[in-house]
Amino acid sequence: MLEGKFDQASLLKKIIDSIRDSVKLCNFNCSQNDGITVQAIDDSRVLLIALKMDPGCFQEFRCDRDMVLGLDLESLGKILKQGNNEDYLTLIAEDNPDSLLIVFEDKKKDRISEFSLKLMDIDSDVLTIDDMDNDCSITMPSADFSKIARDFKTMSESLQIIVTKESVKFKAEGQIGSGSVIFKPHTDLDNPDESIKIDMNQPVNLTFGAKYLNDIVKASTLSSTITIKLTDKAPALFEFKLPSGYLRYYLAPKFED
């Protein structure tokens, strides 16, 4: 049996809102030690989502035996809208379930809402992601990165990320012209999350589809910082930390064959 209780329904709502425009169907893998993990690839096979909600994400978590919950995220999203952000949210599934029970509890009133979501058999490929040695790692405020991704998408289909030891530069070239934003590393002692950290072994210059970056930055609601790991001619990793665990996006770059 699975029973996972979130202190705030908003956490799961934000997570699902961050991924449901990229993937529609996915398997939630549940286990006592790892909590709930998800790996899903978008239809174009350009973007991969790796979610890890450790047991620490939950106020209470038990999972007596490993189970897989096949979920339609659009349907799950509809149910999650029914609860309030501050409600307790509990996911309950029996062994070999054909449905997932979702329970909202208002913390102040005696109100309990229960929903049952039909589960699906989802046949999905699982990709093996080796630990990559990265050429660069950037940690910056997620709001700043989100603004760049959203603004530059109006100018170009692609966003170039150029990292040197001194700076990270985001650049877009479109029909109307071009633009760039440069960030230099800095440490904000009063607001550490406002700091910009650049670790570089080798400079990189990579180009990504603006559409995918726009999907990725939907997760900015989950964490005030984002870590971007880049390697020449390889997929980039965009990571948002959860209270315990992470939401990662692997995005394949664009380049000449």
Partner: peptide, 13 residues
């Protein structure tokens, strides 16, 4: 510039 897919970099299990 052409968009690469992840299959090119990661192996399917």
């Amino acid at each position: 510039m052409s968009q690469q897919t992840l299959s090119r970099f990661f192996t399917v299990r």
